[in-house]
Amino acid sequence: MRPIEYVAPTTVEEAVAALVEKGEAARPLAGGTDILVQLRGGRRAVDRIVDVKKIPELNELSYDPQSGLRVGAAVPCHRIYEDDAIAEAYPGLMDAATLIGGIQIQGRASLGGNLCNAAPSGDSIPALIAHNAIAEVAGPGGRRDVPVEDFCTAPGRTVLGPGEFLVAMRMPAPPANFGASYLRFIPRNEMDIAVAGAGASVVMDGDTVTECRVALASVAPTPVFAEEAGAALVGKAPSDEAIAEAAQAARAAAKPISDMRGTAEYRTHLVGVLTTRALRNAIQRAKEA
């Protein structure tokens, strides 16, 4: 049995020091719903767990209609969707936060943990990308910002360097006529890992799409920012043909594998279906906004 040391720093500086000291053998812990499962299953081994929940900044959740949303890296999902103002302003994030795990999991699981776990299937990541989120990173060299679409580099790997960890995620205030949506496909209705997922956001000017972002889950080694899919819609009315074009671009951006959760062919097909549905949903929400 490998003994594990548990430390719970209360400042960002202490946390950085605790991580730096052990290098690869130290790992942050937020809600623990990924890392504890991985440790018990022997899929990860560490000497030190650095619980980041006790750092006040990581538990802050603030929203301002002008400056936007800032989500501390350890804020659990339930706090996000229980806040009506946030739920209304960030509907894509809401979709993701309400479907991660179940109610018990949502009591612990954080968006920060979801992002840093860097699973291709992480449900909040396409939603964060759709909402233009920026990750705020702290480390031995101070602080830096990383757009969420650039954060994950491989399954389970991120841009975080030695001693670095995620402090918060920032999202701009939604402009007028903004809508977003995240949809995933699972064969059951709960407790499953996305076979494929699609997040989308749009800004509308009358019947014209002026901005559009599409991101995908579970169809590549990392979450995919399908820029071409969004670009396909910009400047157009969201007709069936225009949406189909965007969906086609999303399919082209997907590089899925075949495994027990679905064949590559089926996953590519699902990307088209889910992108279409997420876009329709986002457009509908933009019209209602």
């Binding site: 064969p187 059951r188 209705n189 709960e190 407790m191 499953d192 890992i193 495994d259 027990m260 959760r261």
Partner: peptide, 29 residues
Amino acid sequence: ALNEEYFYDGDGRMVNSSYLDYRMPTSLD
């Protein structure tokens, strides 16, 4: 009928030996 199965790789290893991946119906299904 709908989702449960032993999913094997070519070497005869079951790759979904957990309740997450074995996919028994939940109450919501």
